[in-house]
Simulated assay, not measured.
Amino acid sequence: MTTLPPHKTPLVLIAGHWLGSWAWDAVTQELDAAGWRPAPMTLPGLDPEDPDRTTRSLADQVAAIERLSEHLGVSRTEPAVIVAHSGANAPVSVFIDRHPDLVRRVVWVDSGPMASGSAFAADLPDGVVELPLPPFDQLAGQASIEGLSDADLERFRDRAVTQPASLLRDPVVLHDEARRRVPTTLVCCSFPSAQVMELARGGHPMFAPVAELERVDVVDLPTGHWPMWSRPGDLARVIADAAARQ
């Protein structure tokens, strides 16, 4: 890992569906030890203590990232590094669109930017209020669980928060072309970077926005979809190295 004196740049860590700030515990420990300033957060809708969490919106999540950024002292002269895993790509895509000058670099962890007008699951029936973490044999058909121990899976099951369906239906709406100029690191875990870039250049709906980015570094970290548990030390090093880049 890059060894630096205490680094003023905040690293905002945002995990995907069913997860809160706790998902980054092992990564945060590594970054703390290296002198970085990690700031893991729990998005609205994923706080089990919030009585209104099932009604939270994408706008609420973006506003929460804005509040945390203000709390951390993020500014045009002291921008943050945003680390977004998996389904955190919706609020992070909007945040970058609104505040490209507040983001020094975005690190997508087995994730990537979303296209304007897209939603994770726009066709979910209105009667669906929440989506629970599915059985692991079913989940493995949707996202790789390679590298996760029995203890990892048990903790995942015990701490997962049912995903509000409202957040999956809300479309991402983007306006500012400056978002494409924000330096970007893609951490490719479930798919090798060569395949990701081929899909992006081919216009695959999930990956096409990557081809529109002006400054992209790619890093292969072969493992499953949850590298913060399967390879936390390696992921921390990748994040630190990305954050140290200009």
Rank of each mutant, 00 (worst) to 15 (best):
D97Q: 07
S86I: 14
L168R: 02
P171I: 09
D220L: 04
E177V: 04
P40V: 06
T2F: 08
V196D: 01
A80I: 12
P38R: 03
A15H: 07
P44T: 07
H7D: 11
V219G: 11
P38A: 06
A143N: 06
S86K: 09
Q138R: 03
H204Y: 11
R105V: 12
M206Y: 13
A208C: 10
A119Q: 07
W36P: 00
G203A: 12
G117A: 02
R67W: 13
D32T: 05
A23N: 04
R231V: 00
G202W: 00
D52L: 10
D25H: 14
R179L: 07
L174I: 03
R105E: 14
R98C: 07
G203D: 08
A236T: 03
R180N: 08
V62I: 10
E30A: 14
Q246M: 04
L31Q: 01
L11N: 00
S118H: 00
P6S: 06
R56N: 12
R201W: 02
R231N: 06
A59W: 15
E70Y: 15
A178H: 13
L46K: 00
R180Y: 11
L168P: 03
L174F: 12
A15S: 04
D97C: 10
H7W: 09
R37I: 00
L4G: 02
L43R: 08
I65P: 04
D176N: 09
A39R: 11
P171W: 09
S75K: 03
A211R: 02
A240Q: 04
A64D: 10
D97F: 15
L131N: 03
A63G: 14
H204T: 10
S190H: 11
A122V: 05
G202H: 01
A84H: 06
L186W: 07
G73R: 14
D176S: 02
L153F: 05
P125M: 06
R231Q: 11
D137V: 01
P44F: 11
E49H: 05
P91E: 12
P6K: 12
D170Y: 03
M197Q: 04
S190E: 06
R180T: 15
T54H: 15
Q29A: 09
L31F: 10
V74S: 12
P100T: 04
Q61M: 13
G73Q: 14
M41V: 13
T184P: 08
V238I: 08
S75Y: 15
M41W: 11
P232K: 00
